[in-house]
Amino acid sequence: MNLTLRIWRQTGPDDPGRMVSYQVPDVSPDMSFLEMLDVLNDRLTLDGEAPVAFDHDCREGICGACGMVINGVAHGPERATTACQLHMRHFRDGQTIDIEPWRAKAFPVIKDLVVDRSAFDRIVAAGGYITAPTGAAPEAHAQLVRKSDADAAFESAACIGCGACVAACPNGSAMLFTAAKVSHLSLLPQGQPERSTRVVGMIDAHDAEGFGGCTNIGECTAVCPKGIPLTSIGRLNRDYLKATRDRDGAPAT
């Protein structure tokens, strides 16, 4: 099939950027979206033009490196699918496809579709862990974990840190990302000792990075390629409220 791509081109952080159109003929429906961009980039290279920069690595939907807004939707039209796992059979011949980077204040553009998501790492560094220095661990079966808790923790732990939730949120909030980690760890008995400091530390870091607040719109969970549920944000709010109340004292009634 033949496609028209309109792609965000931006040479660097100081360039205002613009949409540029490209024709891509002979696209196979079995290609992945990124393979289609590979074809375009090969042609641009041979024509002496700058290829489109985009982040990608595993191309199997698990590393979280890829991410682009396709026709206005983070990761494109297929639910629960990263851009690298999106295949061209979901588009039709003659279609025009808009491709843009994640847009959020806390994710500055580096080049074209590549953005800086290091703010996510700093949120994790502010408490998204269980303190368990190597060598100090008790025997694995010393503590039992209810299967339902383990399964729920896993569901949140499946977050790949791609940033689609931020790109989709009208507030540019990273609450789903933060809540996924808070939920994962607070559902497990091992995570209890740091439950309060974790949520407070992570929320402080989240706000300091320039992410917006959450107003429960739910765009995040709709685009999340791993289906992280919105209820994880509820769990985060509950933990946060309890942690700050314990810290600040119960509000006067």
Binding site: A132, T134, A136, A137, A140, A150, H184, L188, Q190
Partner: peptide, 9 residues
């Protein structure tokens, strides 16, 4: 043991 202590689900 180490992974379980870290909260690997």
């Amino acid at each position: 043991d180490q992974a379980v202590a870290q909260g690997v689900p």
